[in-house]
């Protein structure tokens, strides 16, 4: 069973963080990723640039509408994700709780649909 761990955070908090706290967070992410690898559950993952860099595309009646910005304005924004493979939702939720941003943001766990 595979799950996507989606990391939502208030980007303003990230921007306001001082360099020392930022280093600590990076270190926490580094060791979290290591843990996922060691446990053999990590399938992939990435951090994303902020929503300032997002572009949304919709095609309606054959016409492509391109807009500056994310799909929706929200208080917390998608900042990155991990793809993991584990036995069940309880295990996935445990990994989600260990994600460093769970302390400040929201981690959404979504099962991946296999066709």
């Amino acid at each position: 069973m595979e799950y996507l761990i989606l990391i939502y955070e208030d980007e303003r908090i990230n921007e306001a963080r001082d360099p020392k706290a930022n280093d600590e967070l990076m270190q926490a992410y580094y060791s979290y990723t290591e843990q996922l690898k060691q446990a053999g559950v990590l399938m992939g993952g990435n951090a994303l640039h902020t929503i300032d860099t997002a572009t949304s595309v919709r095609v309606r009646e054959g016409r492509t509408l391109t807009t500056d910005g994310p799909f929706a304005e929200t208080k917390e924004q998608l900042g990155g994700y991990y793809q993991i493979r584990c036995e069940n939702l309880d295990e996935a939720l445990k990994w989600a709780a260990l994600c460093p941003s769970s302390a400040t943001g929201t981690i959404e766990v979504r099962p991946i649909l296999n066709y």
């Binding site: 036995e87 069940n88 939702l89 309880d90």
Partner: peptide, 10 residues
């Protein structure tokens, strides 16, 4: 079923 919530004792 889809998110696979286990049928176990916690």
């Amino acid at each position: 079923t889809e998110a696979r919530i286990p049928f176990v004792l916690p």
